[in-house]
Amino acid sequence: MRIAVCAKQVPDPEIPASRFKVDEGSLRAVPPPGVSPVVNGFDLNAAEAAIRLCESEPSAVNEVTVFSAGTDFVMEVMKKPLAMGAHRLVLVDDPALAAIETDTSSTVRVLAAVLHEEGPFDLILCGRQASDWDQAQLPMGLAETLNLPCITLARDLSLTGDGSLRVHRALPDGYQVIETTLPAVVTVSNEYGEPRYPTLRGIMTATRQQPIRYSLADLGLQTQDPPPLRLKRLFIPERSRGCELIEGEDDADSGRLLAIRLREEQLI
């Protein structure tokens, strides 16, 4: 059984809001200087899920391949899933992908093509959403394009005796147990558990490994006509600051005065 994990390089979502800037002309986020991008957090949850399946079902699962489509990849960043224990890294690395970054349908087309080229895969794992454009629809698009079931928000995954996959799907108040035939597309949520820290040995192995690279031309793809959904404006919303700060003689006094203020307002 072969597992594919789709992963995206994104600006570090931990950048404080005060340092977060956008270029309204080029419609891009501008990361502060010196801040490296990261692998989208939910995609690392997906990589962790793939690696754990591989470890818990060694007779069934024998390979985890990580796929990414984009450009300007930072190799130490993109190799993190390899350092965690994934076996192969496949990058569709093409400058033309920068222009269509915000168009999910193009990314779906590219990933579907490279998954076909490198396939077949029994399970395609994705993060539940990306922390940059927050679309949460690439996995659904992939599933529809490949005509596969799409089970979202996994917080637990296991193989059943008859070759199906059992997914615990996170709900606000509990979870659903879903059994799906394979192949399938499954998205993984943060409830699955924190991705592991790469071991030193894992980092050494990943350093020596070279990703398999494709350009759009290698996949027989061209950039598409206008996407069905086009980004027209990107801006940082203005916020009014109407916070009444309660200041006492020290922090404890402030706490005490806050309680009194809230009582005055009949909030407590």
Binding site: V22, A29, P226, P228, L229, R230, K232, F235, I236, P237
Partner: peptide
């Protein structure tokens, strides 16, 4: 940030 998208 906020993004405005338009359908084409």
């Amino acid at each position: 940030a906020m993004a405005v998208y338009e359908f084409t």
